[in-house]
Amino acid sequence: MALEPKEIYEKLQAAFPDISVEFDEAVPCIIVEPMKWKTVALFLRDADDLKFDSLMCLSGVDNGDGNLVSVCHLDSLAHRHKLTVKCVVPADDPKVESVEQVWRTADWHEREAYDLIGIEYVGHRDLRRILMPYDWTGHPLCKDYEVPEFYNGIKVPY
């Protein structure tokens, strides 16, 4: 049976009284404490009435106000419901628990978010850059990113 995000939020609140879980009506989405995210993720994946077996997309976002957001779009093939989960972290200490071992999709997507935004996924077994060269410095999709003048002694044209 398909559930609304609000109902899922109430279920999460009941299941995890000591983890901070918030609900944002505007999107709608659920905002989870970054370092407790994996526990919640496992519950979302395995609970019989939730069964979020597929992670559609994981994106890193630089809010521009000193916060980075890791956004997960979840889908359940069994129940046909969807959910958006966000983890908000400060840009100077961007640590989010990795869900790479919950959904393997997250493996490359977290590497991408690390590469382009700079979110560190704690517990990821292979957190390397994926799209940019391995020796690149900086995270290009950050709002305050400045293109380096030189890369390995080569002038970067723009």
Binding site: M56, C57, S59, G60, V61, D62, G64, R104, T105, D107, W108, H109, L141
Partner: peptide, 16 residues
């Protein structure tokens, strides 16, 4: 746009 992220099908397909 403030942010556009494209989730490419080939990206996940290749990772397997």
């Amino acid at each position: 746009p403030f942010r556009i992220k494209a989730r490419a099908p080939g990206f996940s397909n290749l990772s397997v």
